[in-house]
Amino acid sequence: MTNPPPVARRTRFRLLLSAFIALVLAIPLPVVYSTNIAHAQEVRPRRSIIDFIFGTRRRKPQVMRPVAEPPRKKRPHKSVVRAGSSIVKVEPPTIQKRPDAKKVLVVGDFMASALADGLTAAVEEDPGLAIEKGADGSSGLVRTDHLDWPTTLEAKIGELKPALVVIMIGANDRQQMSVAGKKEKFRSEAWNTEYEKRIEAFIGVTTKNKIPLIWTGLPAFQSPSLSADAATLNNLYRSKVEMAGGTFIDIWDGFADENGKFIASGSDVNGQPVRLRGSDGLSLTKAGKRKMAFYLEKDIRRLTGNDEIANLIRLDSSNLPLEGITPQSTITKIERIAPISFLDPELDGSKALLDSNLVPKTSGISPRDLLIEKGETGPAPEGRVDDFQWKKAEKPAG
């Protein structure tokens, strides 16, 4: 038997080798994955015989992405105290109102109800003020068949004896009114005339009982037409309240943008951005109620005479630090003056300094005048910490 020629043997070897290579390439290579998914690791495939013959094929390294654990929900912290084997829930301490606390009666519609909630939160830590909510959400000055506010307010004043009355009303009054048995359209001439009379009658109840009054204006609303009508009603309220000697509080800017248009979100009493209004464009959130009350706090304390810093030492002629100073005395070298009060103790709105009549008349130039007029600083008084002047040693006598 003759051997095949060398060319035929090489051809047969190449065919067998090609078939073997094709068979090996058809078999999938096993891949080893790391079981630790907390850190991304590179996947390294096994090397086959083909890799040894023809070299390792370069592949892009596959990286396992870490699996992020879902965030855990934090449970609200509860203050608890263990008493033996049982757990007792501790409630935050509440400040009790004094028996002689001044009562502030808040009346009106659903906006007045929100205002009362905000004022309650505002004076929560003040034992000298108590908020009485007397609002009716569906009421107004148009539908007297639902609620006659002058008569109702008279009864509430006789029952509660408030020190101050706060009114907020008008959001339900954009409707026709019955005048002398005839239906009048909203904002018609007859409607305006009758509505002004009802405002005066409402205010007259507080005037007759000699009780201070705060009338709170309406804020902007999501509806442009409702906002326009609210602005018109605010003008009526302001003119009538100020004519009767009451206080009108305008809160419009706190719930509108720089153009006076409605905003749903804005800054709260701490300057933080929050949601102020509800999704209906009418109601107020908790932050919105608190912000509305913020506009009234100062006037409420002024009108009720409830001084927030009651323990502050008041300065008068008997306890001034500088003694022996009379209005007629003259000082040529000014170094100190009598202190002034940080507050207005009498709550009378006076802008005069406390005991300004005791401040002596001066003929010299104060350090302030010297700095402003000449741009110079006066020498430090002898012995003060900033007195850096060298003193000449006195020569001994003789």
Rank of each mutant, 00 (worst) to 15 (best):
R44H: 15
I95G: 03
S34C: 01
P127E: 14
L29S: 13
P28V: 06
L105F: 07
S138P: 06
A122D: 09
A116M: 05
L25N: 08
F54T: 02
Q41P: 02
T56R: 15
G134T: 04
D117W: 09
K74Y: 00
A40R: 05
L105K: 05
T94G: 03
N36H: 08
L25P: 06
K133G: 05
E124P: 01
V88S: 04
A121C: 02
A122G: 03
V31C: 06
L141Y: 04
E42D: 09
R47W: 12
D136E: 00
V81L: 13
I21G: 04
I95E: 04
A26Q: 06
I53M: 09
K97E: 01
N36K: 10
L119V: 01
V31M: 12
R65S: 15
P66G: 10
K89C: 03
P45K: 00
Q96A: 11
G84S: 05
A26P: 01
V80R: 11
F52L: 06
R57D: 08
K73G: 09
D117V: 10
L141H: 08
L23H: 08
E69K: 07
P127S: 12
K89A: 13
P70A: 10
L115K: 07
K74V: 10
R47L: 15
A135H: 09
R57W: 07
P93A: 13
A135V: 01
V67D: 06
I37V: 15
G140R: 03
A38P: 01
R46E: 12
T120S: 14
V80S: 02
A101D: 03
A26S: 12
A38R: 07
A26C: 10
E69T: 09
R65Y: 09
V123M: 13
G108P: 03
V88F: 08
K74T: 11
S34H: 05
T144I: 11
P92I: 15
S86D: 06
V107R: 10
S48V: 08
A121W: 08
S139R: 03
A101S: 12
N36Y: 10
V123A: 11
G118L: 06
V106S: 06
P28A: 05
K60I: 10
A22P: 04
A19V: 10
P70Q: 07
G134L: 02
L23A: 14
P93C: 11
Q96C: 01
A101P: 00
A135E: 07
G140S: 14
V142P: 01
G108T: 13
V123E: 07
I49M: 05
I21R: 14
D145G: 06
A121L: 07
Y33D: 07
S113G: 14
I53D: 04
V142R: 02
V88C: 08
E42R: 14
V142A: 01
K60N: 14
T120D: 12
